[in-house]
Design a protein around this nucleic acid. Structure first.
Lengths: 131, 131
DNA sequence: CTGGATCCCCACTGATACTG
DNA sequence: CAGTATCAGTGGGGATCCAG
């Protein structure tokens, strides 16, 4: 690691930043949680119902991660029974537009993507027909 | 029932599309590969050197996935030794701007993110002081 | 130089049960 | 209702070797 040359405009810088953020939000449940919370603050169970297939544990861990990243706040109302409300922070809300940009791409291009996949699988089937 | 402003009927629709695309590009190496290839066509070894920490196997799998999704083309020059060049397809190039939007967010907010993490870890340390 | 196959480890995930 | 802890299963990912 004796890099004497510092490359400021290194494209890797950008890639690493992108990789870092994808490491955090790239999992299956984080984006779902953010998407659900983008509609407004929500309680734990409401979140779980809205997302659907997420397990109790995974939602807890996901929300913990989001809270740690400062994207979500957890507000505890010390009532009986306990009531905990999750909400996007300012930082979390700023994440929505970039996410929407990406989802726009996904919606617009998913047909082409699936078509490419079918074509690839079809030609791959020639090499591995036995199954 | 006639929503003029309705772009997407179901918010889940968008989340699912986003989740699907993140399942494909959300891993650690895919974005790095796309980023590297955004600078131009490249051979396997050049790609591996540029990305750095990626293992032989993972780069192969990553590129296979990208090729299957129609984001990358693989051109084989039947020379000795073999030479294989990877390049972004049109579809792959269209993915760059949304990715850049996200990386812009990452670059602009990563300081705030890390700060939130430190704050969280610091308060969490109260419960788990052992180290 | 590039691609594939095999082995192996461990981190992530889910189910369950218990506490507040 | 919300959160934590424990246990066990699965599969992702690295290292290595072999083939074209």
């Amino acid at each position: 690691m004796d890099d004497d040359q510092r490359i400021e405009a290194d494209p890797h810088e950008r890639c690493r930043a992108l990789g870092a953020i994808l490491d955090r939000i790239g999992d299956k449940w984080t984006v779902m949680a953010v998407g659900a919370l983008s509609e407004g603050p929500m309680r734990f169970n409401a979140l779980q119902r809205l997302i659907g297939a997420v397990s109790h544990r995974m939602l807890t861990l996901t929300l913990r991660g989001l809270e740690r990243d400062g994207l979500v706040t957890r507000t505890i109302y010390p009532t009986i029974p306990p009531k905990v409300e999750y909400a996007l922070t300012n930082l979390g809300q700023r994440l929505i537009p970039p996410l929407k940009t990406l989802s726009d791409w996904a919606v617009e291009n998913q047909a082409e993507l699936e078509m490419a996949q079918r074509a690839y699988d079809a030609s791959a089937a020639r090499s591995a027909p036995a199954s």
